[in-house]
């Protein structure tokens, strides 16, 4: 495999207002690389939902986006409470977000399903009390 371009971001968990900054930045970076708009949209939406999740549930975390020749990989790592039942969390409409988050337009239980929808593969590893690691991949080959 040829060179992999890596972008790293710290996701600030203190401030819901600033959530999404890393996704906005990665969108700019991918545009500069001249990737197809549809790919850029899928990667940035998946990352945006992940970022929002990290801010809502985990007090922030780290994001890494790796751009390889034939895929883009997004890795999100947090040290939040973990996901007790991943299968349940993956169901559209299931949410543990507090009401104040709902009034901000999120917490509809669509975050993880949306991340899966927009990527070609998604792996969730989570341990209660320890944190969550999600790796998503978008293929660049048609």
């Amino acid at each position: 495999m040829s060179d992999v371009l890596t972008f790293r971001f710290d996701v600030d968990g203190e401030n819901f207002t600033s959530a999404g900054q890393a996704s906005v930045q990665i969108k700019k970076n991918l545009r500069q690389l001249g990737l197809p708009p549809e790919i850029i949209r899928r990667v940035s939406i998946a990352m945006y939902e992940g970022e929002i999740n990290m801010v809502i549930h985990a007090g922030g975390g780290n994001a890494e986006v790796r751009v390889a020749e034939d895929f883009i990989e997004i890795e999100l790592v947090d040290h939040g409470p973990g996901i007790a039942d991943i299968e349940q969390a993956m169901q559209a409409g299931f949410s543990t977000a507090p009401d104040n988050i709902r009034s901000l337009g999120f917490g509809a239980g669509m975050g993880l399903p949306n991340m899966k929808r927009y990527t070609d593969s998604m792996d969730i590893q989570s341990k209660v009390g320890d944190g969550t690691r999600i790796v998503m991949r978008v293929d660049l080959t048609a």
Binding site: F16, T17, S18, A19, G20, S23, V24, K27, P37, R41, S44, I45, Y48, I52, L104, G105, F106
Partner: peptide
């Protein structure tokens, strides 16, 4: 009818 910065980011993500 929602007013917060995430509305702008959402629109941006969706092009």
């Amino acid at each position: 009818g929602l007013v917060n910065p995430q509305v702008i980011r959402t629109a941006e993500m969706m092009d």
